[in-house]
């Protein structure tokens, strides 16, 4: 466990808290992509199948991971549930039009082609890695369609992007300090994912420096 990993995880948790807070205080989910949130729920459910056969008491790290996994699964399901019920009338359904099968299909094919072991759990795990890399796309698509980005939605995506960037630094750290630590599959997907935020980051930072509202061209 290094500083980048912890900071990355905290940034991830912060992004979820920001999103929940935005919905609760403004009583709406305008600008939030339900499709992206459902993809994240699917990502966590397929990533953390190992919860079923891992003893959380094995080590402090296992305990930490178990708590975080349960937190990610439960909050993502909770967000989807809230968007589909309480905040349904504020959801930009027509604008949230990214076609999700175009993400799930290729992620499934990639997982069948590239996985670490020939077991169902490993293929499903690889699927979750590939799907996470692209799950933000409906959200970015929705913002681009809406044009102006609400402050808090901007913070949410920024925190989520920061999580990916910090994880990449964590990999660099580990590759340097832990002999034999190599994770090509995770690294490739993670770098693709971080890259998807590059354009958003550029506009986010520029809007902050100019003190203007964030607009995506």
């Amino acid at each position: 466990m290094n500083i980048f990993r912890i900071a990355g995880d905290m940034s991830h948790v912060a992004s979820i808290a920001i999103l929940l807070l935005k919905m609760k205080t403004s009583r709406n989910c305008a600008g939030v992509s339900l499709k992206t949130q459902e993809l994240y729920a699917l990502v966590f459910l397929t990533r953390y199948v190992d919860l079923l056969f891992t003893n959380p008491l094995r080590s402090p790290l296992t305990m930490y991971n178990t708590i975080m996994k349960i937190l990610f699964i439960s909050t993502s399901l909770y967000i989807v549930y809230q968007m589909r019920t309480r905040y349904k009338h504020t959801y930009n359904e027509a604008a949230d039009a990214f076609r999700v099968p175009f993400l799930i299909g290729p992620a499934a094919v990639a997982a069948l082609l590239f996985h670490l072991k020939n077991t169902v759990v490993e293929v499903v795990w690889a699927f979750s890695i590939f799907l996470e890399a692209v799950a933000i796309m409906p959200q970015l698509f929705l913002l681009q369609k809406t044009g102006e980005v609400e402050n808090i939605t901007g913070h949410y995506i920024f925190a989520l992007g920061a999580y990916r960037g910090l994880y990449a630094l964590n990999w660099v750290w580990r590759a340097f300090w832990e002999p034999g630590y190599r994770q090509w599959l995770t690294w490739t997907a993670g770098i693709v994912q971080t890259g998807l935020y590059a354009d958003f980051f550029y506009h986010y930072i520029r809007s902050k420096r100019q003190g203007k509202k964030l607009k995506l061209p």
């Binding site: 995880d9 790290l61 995770t186």
Partner: peptide, 10 residues
Amino acid sequence: GPTAAPKDEL
């Protein structure tokens, strides 16, 4: 083939 890395990240 490649071995599955221990899943110690989230």
